[in-house]
């Protein structure tokens, strides 16, 4: 089954970034496909390359990058939400791309399910 994932909250502030990641991992382990993860509102902060958590803490941004590298998942950041929060190409973490809301609509059409994580 194809899952689309919508993440509306930033990392470390709220659990939704963790919940979304763990859901993606479990879905992939079960042989499902993650069609796209779309980062909207404060969720765009999941894509900041400048994030530097303490070494004994999980690195939420790097975790997404690794998931994208290992499974070829499309990580899309909403351009308007990103620019409002200072997320640009120059500080975008690897594996993410900046695009528009059309990509969320497309996921809604192409994925079998869209699961939303936020606050």
């Amino acid at each position: 089954m194809k899952f689309g994932i919508l993440v509306n909250e930033g990392p470390y502030q709220h659990q939704s970034a963790d919940s979304a990641y763990l859901f993606c991992k479990a879905a992939l382990e079960k042989g499902h496909e993650i069609h796209r993860v779309f980062f909207y509102h404060d969720g765009v902060n999941n894509a900041s390359r400048l994030t530097e958590p303490p070494q004994d803490d999980r690195n939420i941004v790097k975790r997404w990058t690794q998931l994208a590298e290992e499974h070829g998942i499309d990580l899309v950041v909403c351009v308007a939400a990103a620019l409002r929060r200072g997320i640009k190409e120059e500080n975008l973490a690897a594996g993410f791309r900046i695009s528009g809301l059309g990509q969320l609509v497309e996921t809604g059409i192409e994925a079998d399910r869209v699961v939303t994580f936020g606050d």
Binding site: K25, A26, A27, K30, R113, V114, V115, F117
Partner: peptide, 19 residues
């Protein structure tokens, strides 16, 4: 349920998040 069970439920039903 664990996360695997969450995925099974999401696969079985359409999903509505109450944010």
């Amino acid at each position: 349920v664990d996360y695997g069970g969450f995925v099974d439920l999401a696969a079985e039903h359409t999903c509505q998040s109450w944010l």
